[in-house]
């Protein structure tokens, strides 16, 4: 019979992976208002299928410091609307404690906090709030930090569409007319760029396009586009970078020393 460790090596019973999820945030302004659940009910009824059993994060950021309410009963009433409270963010200390006690996960609030939380490994020695069990670190955000760049080594042919979701795109060969490159990040093309290139596809205005030979049909950064007709012939077949300068699509020759 094989030992436990050998078994574990052969067929691992689990795998740890980073992932990101989109969740609704229920911003709570006045939890004690008698109107709260009647109005929530009206909202939920507008799209019952969309809301049914949807996970929500309760946002207590706008609650006054002095507020007192029965959090467990509040959560139960939210559940009665077929919403699933899974976490919370912000709020006065007593509310946070009550929420943690009710089994909700503390979510980091705001983008800056997110990154900080992830970059700084949680210190297990640091005691949790008011001596309670330490608040678990948010594992769900690991992916935000680094997503591998999408690298394409084959020619991108007419009619092909390559999308680098939430990352950069590198093409080491040429991009044909009628082909389309999309990336939420930057786009680099080390062959001739003859098709379309749309960087910052989800709105990142800092994204750039870099190419060795600019012969593109369309260039776009965060929705600001230019068609080949409007591209100055000074840049044609040159090594160029394309970016937004004060919200205007601009181009610079890349200096090759």
């Amino acid at each position: 019979m094989s030992s436990a460790s050998q078994v574990a090596e052969r067929d691992v019973p689990f795998q740890l992976r980073g992932n990101s999820f989109t969740m609704m945030v229920l911003k709570v302004f006045a939890p004690t208002s008698p109107e709260f659940f009647t109005q929530l009910n009206v909202k939920v009824r507008q799209a019952p299928n969309f809301f049914r059993n949807a996970p929500v994060v309760l946002d207590f950021d706008d609650l006054p410091e002095s507020i007192v309410f029965d959090l467990a009963a509040f959560v139960a009433q939210v559940q009665a609307q077929h919403l699933l409270p899974v976490g919370f963010q912000g709020g006065p200390q007593p509310v946070r404690e009550a929420a943690a006690a009710a089994g909700l996960t503390p979510m980091p609030s705001g983008r800056a906090a997110k990154l900080e939380e992830v970059v700084k490994a949680p210190d297990p020695r640091q005691p949790g709030a008011q001596g309670q069990a330490p608040i678990p670190a948010p594992q769900v955000l690991v992916e935000v930090v680094h997503r591998p760049t999408l690298v394409v080594t084959e020619p991108v042919r007419s009619g092909m569409r390559v999308y680098a979701e939430k990352t950069d795109l590198i093409v080491t060969s040429s991009v044909s007319p009628g082909a389309e490159l999309l990336a939420d990040g930057n786009i680099h093309v080390y062959g001739a760029l003859r098709g379309r290139a749309l960087a910052g596809f989800s709105g990142d205005a800092k994204a750039r396009i870099f190419c060795h030979s600019l012969e593109a049909e369309v260039l776009s950064v965060a929705g600001n586009y230019r068609v080949s007709e409007d591209i100055s012939s000074d840049f044609y077949k040159k090594a160029v970078q394309v970016f937004l300068r004060d919200g205007v699509l601009s181009m610079d020759l890349l200096k090759t020393a």
Binding site: R157, S158, G159, G178
Partner: peptide, 9 residues
């Protein structure tokens, strides 16, 4: 261009 497309296919 059409040949390029068929190469992709």
């Amino acid at each position: 261009r059409d040949s390029d497309r068929i190469l992709g296919v």
